[in-house]
């Protein structure tokens, strides 16, 4: 599927997650966040940077990882990304959502 963000055509899956991370930019991330009702702040971007690091090293994302990240505690993580914080943060970060095998 395709979707246009800021005049760029972006490849996404059925759930809106980017399927090609190379198409991601900070500006597109901010647009996706807006659709989720989230206005990005420096703290939000710090979390997104941490998530990108994990993704590039092919390390799994988890609430435990967030707890140990030193970037943020879990209560703050929920406040920044209300609802499903890992699900929303990965959506904004342009990487696949955490999933199981089916």
């Amino acid at each position: 599927m395709e979707k246009t963000y800021l005049q760029s055509i972006i490849q996404i899956n059925e759930e809106g997650y980017l399927t090609d991370f190379t198409q991601w930019t900070k500006e597109i991330g901010a647009e996706i966040a807006k659709e989720q009702g989230i206005e990005m702040t420096d703290k939000h971007w710090e979390v997104i940077d941490y998530i990108h690091d994990k993704y590039k090293n092919e390390e799994a994302l988890s609430i435990r990882g967030i707890k140990k990240s030193g970037v943020i505690n879990i209560k703050e993580f929920y406040e920044l990304f209300p609802g499903g914080p890992l699900k929303k943060a990965t959506l904004i970060a342009g990487i696949p959502k955490p999933k199981s095998c089916i």
Binding site: N13, E14, E15, I63, G84, L86, K87, K97, P98, K99, S100, C101, I102
Partner: peptide, 16 residues
């Protein structure tokens, strides 16, 4: 579940 569903992949969700 901590994930966003009992099924987490689009094709499996649709089929199952």
């Amino acid at each position: 579940t901590p994930l966003d569903g009992a099924f987490t992949k689009p094709k499996a969700t649709e089929a199952l």
